[in-house]
């Protein structure tokens, strides 16, 4: 396990954000490009299809552009909160919360030729198991293990204390262990 490297330091990010606030299109473009993949991955694990993930990511970028002048505090925390709110809206609109069906496209996209079929199946099960977690547990798991943020940073993003984040993290991993330990069948089209 290795920490996922960040390609921008806090200082660089701060400078780009300030320029973007001053209507510097180049800075704004760079900001969106930098966060697009992170936001996409964050949303990807919580929605049903690639199309939805792309649409929501695009929507997050638009909201960032619109609301940037009013942005305060940590930028990455702010942007992930926007994404989180949009995901909530998405499920409210569709009245389908945590649909666990994993789109075949997702499996195809993530299939790595070097991995064995068993590995792929395990990965698929793991992704499906993550979708069984609560919203905040999914959030913490993705930010911690997919995006590689520190606990303190996640605490800023989700608006909780570091201790609360640790507790969520612990409960999320325990829940996943229980899912696998109980050999619970992961239904593909279940709407919770």
């Amino acid at each position: 396990m290795k920490s996922k490297a960040k390609d921008l330091t806090d200082e660089e990010l701060h400078q780009i954000v300030e320029k973007a606030k001053a209507k510097d299109n180049r800075a704004l473009g760079r900001l969106c490009e930098h966060f697009y993949s992170k936001i996409y991955r964050f949303i990807y694990y919580r929605v049903n299809s690639i199309e939805d993930a792309e649409d929501l990511t695009s929507e997050v970028c638009l909201r960032v552009v619109k609301s940037l002048p009013e942005q305060k505090g940590l930028f990455y925390a702010w942007i992930f909160r926007i994404a989180s709110n949009l995901i909530t809206d998405y499920y409210c609109r569709r009245a389908v919360r945590s649909n666990v069906a994993i789109n075949e496209d997702l499996v195809e996209e993530m299939a790595d030729e070097k991995r064995t079929t068993t590995e792929l199946l395990e990965q698929q099960e793991l992704r499906q198991a993550i979708k069984h977690l609560t919203e905040e547990q999914q959030q913490v798991i993705v930010l911690k293990f997919i995006e590689g943020y520190e606990t303190d940073e996640i605490a800023d993003m989700v608006g909780k204390s570091a201790g609360a984040v640790r507790a969520i993290q612990f409960r999320a991993l325990t829940a996943l262990r229980n899912i696998f330990a109980s050999d619970m069948p992961i239904r593909k089209d279940k709407t919770v």
Partner: peptide, 22 residues
């Protein structure tokens, strides 16, 4: 195991489309 999951990547067109919308 979660960390070892392959990272999903967005399509090139989606990123372009998002930038155009912005």
């Amino acid at each position: 195991q979660i960390e070892d999951l392959p990272l999903p990547t967005s399509s090139f067109e989606a990123l372009s489309s998002a930038l155009i919308n912005i």
